[in-house]
Simulated scan of single mutants.
Amino acid sequence: MVGLIQLLGGPMFGRFADLFGARAALSLACSATIVFFLLLAAANHPAMLFVHKLPTIFMHVLPASQMVVTDLSEPDKRADALSKLGLCFGIGMIVGSTLGGHLNTRYGETFAACFGAAGSAFSLMLVLKFIPKTTKGQAPRTNTDTGTAAASENKNKSIFNLGEITRLMKFPGVTPTFVVKIVAGLPSGIFQVMFSVIAMEFFKLEPEQNGYVMAYFGIVSMVVQGGVIGRLTARYSESSLLLLSIGVSSFVGLAQGYMQNVFQFCLTVVPMVFSLSVFNVITDSMLTKSVPSSDTGTMLGLSASVQSLLRTVGPTIGGFLYVNYGISSIGLIQFVVNIAVFVFMLHRGLKKKVEQKD
């Protein structure tokens, strides 16, 4: 349900950010999170568990934060800035999960939910205090902005204007990047949404052991996003890094197809987190550079909808594969799909170089 709601809400949320500013969008996301936790605290019936998910249509805190960073960062340093933002969210996920577990154990679910609402309210105060009211004017204009200023002035101001949202797909390079993001990201997305089932049924992990594995995930992610991606983007082109991430992901799928225990899985975590982090950061950076700076919010909203799409269809596809063909099928499909995308992109890149030489 959350995946479907955010799939529909992502583009509209991005459009809202372009029309009213990234700070307004981030404030809306924090406000929706407050309502989300308060409804959870008041839930006394299973139906309320569905009702309290409704505010997730506006709960796009990560994309909204990416919008702020995109507006305030220079294009050539954008990928590094987005990776540092991922580092911050990684720290928050580790600390938040640990603190939430302790609060839930000692004081109960209602108190934990109220504490979440209070934390979100504090986040809202920080946003209003420290984020500039106007962020787009402070960022350098990209080459894509040339010739689009007049069109931007005449844009329809409705956040529900599907034409204004879908027109971004017509910019050079946007549609191919989206296709790669969906096709190459689907297999790894299936494994991610199925991991809780795999941990319990295949690895036979207890909740405490599963917590250690998730902490390991978080630490590796922090190291990769905080200390690796920035250095790579300074030395190599984004197209090369995208190709590298897809190639690494294919071999991660091959390893996951033959793993038998949790130790073997932990060995695959490092390359898996590396490929996922590089893939997500680079595709987001490429997409925002492909459109005018006035439309980066909408583009990030569309990008976030890709993740929501994977969360929507992933459980159904993953459940079918796991029940009928086992965990190895998920990994092997990831290997085949990513190798195919890798070969296609490599051939396309070589063809472009030949055309440029001619």
Rank of each mutant, 00 (worst) to 15 (best):
V252G: 06
A42M: 09
P75D: 13
F203I: 03
L4F: 13
S27N: 12
Q192A: 15
I57C: 01
Q260T: 09
F16N: 01
V2I: 08
L87N: 04
V220G: 02
G227R: 07
A121Q: 03
V95M: 15
M59Y: 05
L28R: 06
T288K: 02
R78D: 03
L300S: 11
A113W: 04
L128D: 00
E153F: 14
L186V: 11
G10Q: 01
P75T: 13
L54M: 06
T166V: 11
V262M: 09
F265E: 04
V273N: 02
T105G: 09
S329A: 14
I159K: 07
A22K: 10
K53Y: 11
Y325K: 04
F217A: 07
C114I: 00
V248Q: 01
M345T: 05
G147P: 10
A47D: 04
G137E: 11
S97K: 01
V35Q: 05
V35E: 06
G211Y: 12
S329M: 10
L49F: 15
P315F: 15
L26R: 06
N156K: 12
K136H: 08
H60M: 02
N210R: 13
H60V: 00
G349F: 04
F342S: 07
Q138M: 14
P132W: 07
E206V: 01
P11T: 06
V193A: 10
P207A: 10
L128G: 04
N104P: 00
D145N: 14
F130C: 12
P132Q: 08
G96K: 12
A43I: 11
N154A: 09
M200D: 11
S285C: 14
G349Y: 07
S120T: 11
Q209G: 07
A150Q: 09
M345N: 06
T316E: 15
A81D: 13
M214A: 15
Q356W: 05
A149Y: 02
G90A: 10
Y107G: 00
L19A: 04
G218L: 09
V278E: 02
T33V: 03
M222W: 00
M200V: 11
Y236S: 06
T233G: 08
F191Q: 02
T148I: 01
I94V: 12
T33G: 03
A43D: 14
L332Q: 14
V281F: 01
G90N: 10
V291W: 03
T70A: 15
S249P: 01
S152Y: 14
S293Q: 09
M345Y: 10
F263M: 08
G247A: 14
M286N: 12
R141H: 08
K84I: 08
G163W: 06
A215L: 10
T296C: 14
S152F: 13
A42C: 07
L124V: 15
Q6A: 00
V183S: 13
M125A: 15
M67K: 10
F263C: 08
L168W: 01
L300E: 07
S73I: 12
I165C: 03
T70V: 06
